[in-house]
């Protein structure tokens, strides 16, 4: 379960108002896509859900509880880049989340527990088509492969909420179709609520069950920082495809 409630949320940096009076309720397992001009607070909103920024005023609740003030395993994140660990192989990158939860002091698993974690990671690797690259380092992967790995890495701890900050923004348009398929499969298999920022209008309509447009309602040309952005359009996207029966590959992922 992860429904997100936003009540009269304001975010200001000194005199600069970034978000003003944001009100929102997002149900469990919703796939929310967010678009808007740059600098209109989309990423700030995501960072508040992540816990690295705090609201100035108002409330941001997950299942009725305020969002903790630091990142945690209940909220996964995929950034545009830099979210892989360069010193770990592909498999180790994927297993890291399991090793963190399984070993408090060493952060490493051994023996049967390691095999168990490796099995889980390998089935996930297979599902994202990276099985042959399991022993490579991230710098040896293409951008698309890196992002696939980063997404898989984020879901391995089975977060309630997955946050995607323009995950495909730096990729070739040609490979985004694959990425969409993977993210939809993982979303269905893992029962997450997803928030995804994108610059691609088509993508935002195609993927989401709900589209939010962030924009400023008021604008003062002499003081552009005076007013903040808020959700100006909230468009439900009812798509049959999302409720289709689970494809076989996904069944593997649901353990």
């Amino acid at each position: 379960m992860a429904c997100v409630t936003v009540k009269h949320l304001w975010k200001e940096y000194g005199d600069q108002v970034v978000l003003e009076n944001l009100n929102l309720h997002v149900a469990d397992r919703e796939f929310v896509t967010i678009i808007g001009a740059s600098g209109c607070g989309k990423t700030t909103f995501l960072r508040m859900l992540l816990g690295v920024e705090q609201p100035t005023k108002g409330q941001l609740l997950i299942d009725g509880q305020p969002v903790p003030a630091e990142p945690g395993p209940d909220r996964g994140i995929v950034f545009q880049r830099y979210s892989l660990f360069p010193h770990l192989s592909v498999l180790d990158n994927l297993m890291l989340g399991l090793e963190f939860s399984g070993s408090r002091w060493l952060g490493k698993l051994f023996g049967a527990r390691r095999r168990e974690a490796a099995e889980k990671a390998e089935s996930l690797l297979e599902a994202i088509g990276l099985h042959t690259a399991r022993d490579k380092y991230p710098s040896q992967l293409s951008g698309g492969m890196q992002q696939r790995l980063s997404i898989a890495q984020s879901v391995i701890r089975e977060p309630k909420i997955l946050l995607l900050d323009e995950p495909f923004g730096a990729l070739d348009p040609g490979i985004t179709a694959d990425m969409h398929e993977i993210i939809l499969r993982l979303w269905q298999a893992n029962r997450m609520t997803i928030f995804m920022i994108t610059h691609d209008l088509k993508e935002s309509f195609q993927l989401g069950t709900r589209l939010l447009v962030f924009d400023k309602r008021r604008h003062d040309p002499h003081a552009p920082e005076r007013y903040g952005a808020t959700v100006t359009y909230d468009i439900p996207l009812n798509r049959k495809k999302h409720s289709a029966p689970t494809p076989p590959l996904t069944a593997e992922l649901v353990r």
């Binding site: 395993p73 909220r75 980063s150 984020s154 977060p159």
Partner: peptide, 12 residues
């Protein structure tokens, strides 16, 4: 990004 990611994976 890396440090935040690690925290979302449950790192102390």
């Amino acid at each position: 990004e890396q440090l935040i990611k690690a925290q979302t994976l449950g790192a102390s």
